[in-house]
Amino acid sequence: MSDGEGPGGPPLISVRTMDIVVALLMIAAAAVVIGDSLRLGMGWQENEGPRAGYFPFYVGVILAVSSAVNLVRAVLDRNGAGKTFTTKPALLQVLAVLIPLAIYVGAVAVIGIYVASIAYMALFMWHFGKYPLWRGFLVGFAVSAVFFLMFEIWFLVPLPKGPLDEPLVPVVSAFMKSIGL
């Protein structure tokens, strides 16, 4: 689809390199699959049909073979070396989303999803949208509040919570009940 023309700049990684890396990773995955299939038994059992490892084994083999073909093709492909997978600014742009996202997910596990979401949204809006921080926090708070009411109060689906939002649940629940919601 997109052929990697992000913000300008010198190519950093070529499509060829990336093709090789992905093919190698897939071969590794295939090895993991085949390894466990052998432990489970990949044969055809009399009267019972295939054993637990039968399908995964052949799936693993197909994965390995097709990835090997992709690998060879990528290695031989002179064209691909010229095509850009990503440029430095483009990669930085992607990492600027990906790294905060990882931090956000890590934070969800510790301080709960609602608080983490407020911070994440505020910082994202501030960094990428150049909004003042207070507006980011406001929007983040609104979004979090909606989800909080929906999940914790009405649907009774508990999402990960931390020390800050956990004590809120009974309080808000009682309040919503008292105003008839």
């Binding site: 997910v105 890590g106 969800v108 596990a109 510790v110 990960p160 931390g162 020390p163 956990e166």
Partner: peptide, 12 residues
């Protein structure tokens, strides 16, 4: 993440 989560909940 799970460890971190459970550590927190445990201290809680």
């Amino acid at each position: 993440s799970k460890q971190a989560h459970s550590r927190w909940s445990r201290s809680l």
